[in-house]
Amino acid sequence: MGKTIIRRFIIMIPQLFVLSILVFFLAKFMPGDPFTGLITPQTDPARLEELSEKAGLNDPWPIQYVRWIGNALHGEFGISYTFKRDVGDLIGERALNTFWLSLLSVTLLYAIAIPLGILAGRYQNSRLDKTIILYSFITYAIPTFVLALLFLFLFGYKLEWFPTSGSVDIEYSSGTLQYYWSKFHHILLPAITYAILGTTGIIQFLRSEIIDAKGMDYVRTARSKGIPIKKVYTKHIFRNSLLPIAAFLGFTITGLLGGSIFIETIFGFPGMGQLFVSSIASRDYSVITALVMLYGFLTLLGSLLSDIIMSIVDPRIRIE
């Protein structure tokens, strides 16, 4: 397996190379440039020209590409045109915010979805099952921004249980206990919102897997051996039913850095989703290209991780 993993990593190089070409040239094909947004009656067109000359934006695209890829290989993605900061620092700051938010979201997501899925499958067609299904249909049907706004109004503004925007209270200084509590407090409501909205898939998968498994031979065998029904569910059925969920785990882990534009916008949370969308709008080339390369790499890594996890969880599967 070690060999396979190394080989997969080597294959990533040409894949990322192709991605880099696509991203770079598509970004350049967009109309306008980072300086278009600076036009006011007071700005001097000659100065904008000078700035874009200095930034190398007037060179032929292949030359710009070679320069960019050369820097990127050294880990330098340049300076953000909008924020005027090192792209690595900028993304790092946002990625950290998004990472903690996503980690809490995903944890809550599984904490809600797995028990519900198991219960629904185990007590199929009972009132409980129907309630769970109703719940999952409703959460599936509600658009993200609707639920996010509703929760924000209700729990943030009316009941005042949660802070209403930002990622941390400015009063606390970094490193103190209150500071970390404040950070946690700020991500809790967005995370709950996100978790509730995302449960449907997992609940449905688990439920149908469990219903399928109930009729399997190995379950009948276990029951006939006299194993208590509770144990059959926790030991036999549960492990088997988790397979399809485990298949996505790799993507889930690397997807932690994706961020959600809706959640971030409504909760005023500076994260990756917003950075990506706003960098496209402002033609912040250095940020766009760095982010797409990062997401591309994470997706490849996610699929590799998923394969590895599958082979661990289900020994029948081998990656060759």
């Binding site: 921004f145 706004l149 109004f153 943030g156 503004y157 209403t164 925007s165």
Partner: peptide
Amino acid sequence: VLVKVVPSSSVSVAIGTGK
């Protein structure tokens, strides 16, 4: 003085609730 960025989607409620 404390200045905070507030998303446009919820600013009206923030005004009403005296934030």
